[in-house]
């Protein structure tokens, strides 16, 4: 059935002379390219993120662990899920005493789904970069930082290095060479905590994904 359907559909599509692409050109034009400097990128990113109730914290390479400690404390987290193998995760693990119980994604989800769903307070992940125009994090989850980390726990704490803040999604795709590199199993853009406006078009936060999104913006030089 499958192959017959395939043949029939393709045959019908090929029956007619292919329709002309619309006379209007301009598919390739980049209508939204901006030459925002770093300060402007940060300003826009922060404004957009805060507009959808994400928390933004500024830090640098020396004090980001303090900032993270404070966030964990302020939120009263009992535990924090992270990868002990990323650069950031290693640094956190080295000072484990300052943090809530650190948890690791030690085995495939099937082996500890219940705890993942009902027992983890927050997850910490790195990011591949950010997008200033829309206030967006780029995540390419992998074996170290799996997909559910930024989805299932009620709080997601993400670290974004300021130097990886691109102007637009289009610019990020190009500058990071997505097509050349090949896309991962799952690439994600995350722009705020989970939300819905399905009842009376009124925004409610924390539907199925994280209720809170916390972004630590790390400056390579002190801000």
């Amino acid at each position: 059935m499958n192959n017959v359907a395939r043949t029939n559909i393709l045959q019908r599509l090929r029956k007619e002379t292919p329709p002309q692409p619309s006379p209007c050109q301009g598919k390739e034009q980049d209508v939204s390219s901006f030459d925002w400097d770093r300060a402007e990128r940060i300003r826009r990113f922060t404004e957009r993120m805060e507009a959808v109730r994400a928390e933004i914290h500024h830090a640098d390479h020396r004090d980001w662990l303090d900032v993270l400690t404070e966030i964990c404390h302020a939120k009263g987290l009992n535990n924090l899920l992270l990868s002990p193998n990323t650069t950031w995760g290693q640094a956190i693990s080295a000072q484990a005493g300052r943090f809530p119980t650190l948890r690791h994604y030690e085995q495939p989800i099937d082996g500890w789904k219940e705890e993942m769903f009902y027992g983890i307070d927050a997850a910490f992940t790195s990011t591949l970069g950010g997008i200033a125009e829309t206030g967006t994090l780029i995540l390419w989850p992998d074996a170290e930082e799996p997909r559910t980390m930024s989805l299932v726990p009620p709080v997601h704490i993400a670290l974004l290095e300021v130097d990886k803040l691109h102007t637009t999604f289009a610019a990020a795709v190009q500058e990071q060479g997505w097509v050349e590199k090949g896309l991962p199993t799952n690439a994600l853009l995350v722009s705020g905590p989970s939300k819905s406006a399905d009842i009376e078009q009124t925004l409610a936060y924390g539907v199925h994904g994280p209720k809170e999104l916390v972004v630590i913006l790390v400056f390579s030089h002190p801000a």
Partner: peptide, 9 residues
């Protein structure tokens, strides 16, 4: 933009 843009490959 929406909260999530999910690209599955």
């Amino acid at each position: 933009i929406t909260t999530y843009f999910n690209m599955i490959s």
